[in-house]
Amino acid sequence: MKKSLLVLPVLLSFALTACTGTEVTSNPDNKPAASKGQEAPPKEEGARAKIGDTITLDSGEDGLKLEVTVVKVVPSAKPKDEFNVPEPGHRFAAVQIRLKNVGSTTYDDSPGNGAQLIDDEDQQYGEGLNEIALGASIGTSVKLAPGSSRKGYLVFSVPKKVKPTKFQFTLDSGFGPQAGEWLLK
């Protein structure tokens, strides 16, 4: 009985540590002004990231930090070929992202593992391994040295009638301490 009482605090400690959760941020980074020497005006308090905005996300790994930019959204993307088609009643929606490693360690992950597309009914869809005619996917295995960047599409199969409204991205295959969220309007 005494051993089980000693083990209980340790188990509770592990349970509380595992439940720390992920912080979701939709605050875009400030962008530098086009003119040399001038700073961009700060983003409004409570401003929500949208297409074209960058959010810098921290990883659970020391020294790993990425700037993530939603470059483009294609609500209805054509498949790359006749073998790569959505299931009946669905269509492909694609989000083009740019990842830039602004940390001090190498990023080595599958970006699609941490990507979610959210529709107008608050349902979410994970990235599929599909190819579209518009351009290259970002890939299933991305390695970025500090200072390097990569751009490509993440493809989602969604019901034809839904409207994608948000995109979320989390480092560490979806288990990172921060998730960025962009409005797709």
Rank of each mutant, 00 (worst) to 15 (best):
D58Y: 06
N30L: 09
V73N: 06
I97S: 04
E67C: 13
A115C: 06
K78C: 03
G21H: 01
P177W: 10
G147M: 04
R98N: 15
G103W: 00
T69M: 15
D109W: 12
E39H: 04
F175C: 08
E127N: 08
A34S: 11
I55T: 05
Q96N: 15
P79N: 00
A18R: 03
S26C: 06
K166Q: 13
E45D: 14
V155H: 01
K163A: 14
K78F: 00
L16G: 12
L12I: 11
D120I: 10
G52M: 06
E23P: 00
P79Q: 09
V68Y: 02
V142N: 00
S26E: 08
I97Q: 03
T105I: 14
T56H: 08
L183D: 11
G176K: 01
A77E: 02
A136K: 15
V24N: 02
L171H: 03
V142L: 12
Q38A: 04
Y125T: 00
L5N: 11
I118P: 04
G37T: 06
K2P: 07
G139D: 04
V10A: 07
E44G: 10
L184I: 10
W182I: 11
L154I: 10
E67A: 15
G128R: 13
K143V: 15
L57G: 01
T20N: 05
A15P: 03
Y153G: 09
K65N: 03
L144S: 07
Q168E: 13
